[in-house]
Design a protein around this nucleic acid. Structure first.
Length: 461
RNA sequence: GGCCCCAUCGUCUAACGGUUAGGAUCCAUGGUUUUCAUCCAUGUUAUAGGAGUUCGAGUCUCCUUGGGGUCACCA
């Protein structure tokens, strides 16, 4: 049987890193087995849905390149289908109308809490045959087993047993007739042919409820995998400031999708000592049964390292395209390849890379105070002046030629490399750190190099 | 609180019941580099605690502790 997995976000907020990892696991499982990965939008709660959130989720999937198979399924468009199953259960006596008001339910809950009991619906309308109270729109509840245990095998955690007493007759249709989550999920998963449901740990307790629906409707129960959560570095719930932001924020921060995916796949899953995984390798090696039981903590260091790796690996063409979003357009620049070669290894993110490149592209508007203080002192002015003269005479064009001029001045003046290197660097780029000098000069050309040095001499020394 | 799940370096993770408990990241040091970064090398750091099973336990069992999840007419 062909494997079918899915990702089913609710469009109430952005897709964050935890959701993306779960989706990745599902996607990999499908791809590994030549199966299908479906996308379903869980928008049964009309009050909380948002079109923007839905679009943002779809956009995030597009950015990371995880394509789904077939059409996106919207639960809001399937209400009639759910209605049919509700009626069926009602007819078969597997579900019933409950006329309890919200107020009564709240009272019951308070009483249970006061007695330190578990809060649950008491089944008072389960076998009700009398005259229903007036003015109350009933909800529909499903009959859950009252004794025994509901068991299932979780592909990650192993056998899970939950006492039937923990599962009450939960609501499958609201007073306004709209179906609820656990009911529609079970129906859709079954109807969409899901073989493997991979989802967050927080759904573990929904599983017995959904099994009740599966059984009531006579559907085949799929394999379940509950992936432990991602926590922050302190092991606490991930919040916005820890990185639980919109996945698209990572794009803005200058991360490559392959770095993000590689980072995420290693959170809870591994293959020996391997750290770097191409998409193809992930697909070839991934097995949801190998996902760790324990939760993992989010740590930016590793992502940064991975991102630096993928930037170094990226082709010039690719970087040129990506850099456009960060204020650097190298299109048509004949020095583009040299510029990237000089800067690639100095940026852990595209933001940092762009900053480095701008230092070369644009003459410094100002000089870093600390750097200029240190570099523009003593005989720096005289040395740079001589250097300009030498450049004018030699008019170097290649990196080697520029290097030769630097060697010459060092030799003639009997100074250390630092004596010319430091002031030169600050004059050219405004700061004491950055790409190699001869490399930068050969990119700038003799004229621009001289222009920048002279400007520094006039304005800063 | 009830129920469920989890527990190896700071972090991500390896380890047929038998390894000096491995790798990566971070950090530190050294080398390469005119600077910074890259790269290379070296180093510090872990089986939560306690019983038990076993010739032998990170690995199996139980307890404790700690953490997480969940208890809606949300998803």
């Amino acid at each position: 049987m062909s494997v079918v997995t899915r990702f089913a976000p609710s469009p109430t907020g952005y897709l964050h890193i935890g959701g993306l990892r779960t989706a990745l696991f599902s996607w990999l499982t499908a791809k590994h087995n030549n199966g299908k990965f479906l996308l379903r939008i869980e928008d049964t709660d009309m009050a909380r849905n948002s079109e923007e959130a839905k679009d943002a989720i779809l956009k995030a999937f597009e950015w990371v390149g995880m394509e789904h198979d077939g059409e996106v399924v919207y639960q809001s468009k399937r209400f009639e289908l759910y209605k049919k199953y509700i009626d069926q259960l009602l007819e078969e006596g597997k579900a019933y109308k409950c006329y309890m008001t919200k107020e009564e339910l709240a009272t019951l809950r308070e009483e249970q809490m006061a007695k330190n009991e578990r809060t649950r619906y008491d089944g008072r309308y389960r076998d009700f045959t009398g005259t229903p109270p007036e003015g109350v729109d009933p909800v529909i509840r499903i009959k859950a087993p009252q004794e025994g245990t509901i068991s299932f095998v979780d592909g990650i955690k192993g056998e899970i047993n939950i006492a039937a007493s923990e599962v009450d007759d939960f609501v499958i249709a609201r007073a306004d007739g709209a179906p609820t989550y656990n009911f529609v999920v079970a129906i859709d998963d079954a109807l969409m042919g899901l073989t493997d449901v991979i989802r967050g740990d927080d759904h573990l307790y929904n599983t017995p409820k959904q099994i009740v629906v599966y059984q009531a409707l006579g559907f085949k129960i799929p394999n379940f995998y509950h992936v432990a959560m991602i926590n922050n570095e302190q092991g606490k719930k991930l919040s916005k400031r820890d990185g639980a932001t919109d996945v698209m924020a990572y794009k803005t921060m200058g991360y490559l999708p392959e770095a993000l995916l590689n980072f995420l796949v290693r959170l809870g899953w591994s293959h020996g000592d391997q750290e770097i995984f191409s998409l193809e390798e992930m697909i070839a090696l991934f097995d949801p049964h190998n996902i760790n039981k324990s939760s993992s903590n989010y740590n930016l260091d590793k992502l940064l390292w991975l991102n630096a790796h993928y930037i170094k690996e990226a082709s010039d063409e690719k970087l040129i395209t990506l850099l456009k979003d960060f204020g650097v357009d190298l299109t048509g620049n004949e020095k583009a390849s040299d510029i990237l070669h000089a800067t690639k290894e100095r940026g852990k993110t595209l933001v940092e890379l762009a900053t480095q490149i701008k230092l070369i592209l644009h003459a410094p508007q100002s000089y870093d105070e600390k750097s200029s203080k240190k570099a523009f002192k003593g005989e720096a002015k005289e040395i740079l002046g001589t250097f300009v003269q030498m450049l004018k005479e030699a008019h170097p064009t290649t990196q080697e030629a520029f290097h030769a001029v630097m060697e010459k001045i060092v030799e003639e003046k009997e100074i250390g490399f630092g004596k010319i290197g430091m002031p030169l660097r600050v004059a050219l780029m405004g700061s004491m750190t950055g790409a190699g000098m001869d490399e930068v000069m050969s990119i700038l050309g003799t004229d621009e190099t001289i222009k920048r040095i002279e400007k520094a001499i006039i304005t800063a020394m």
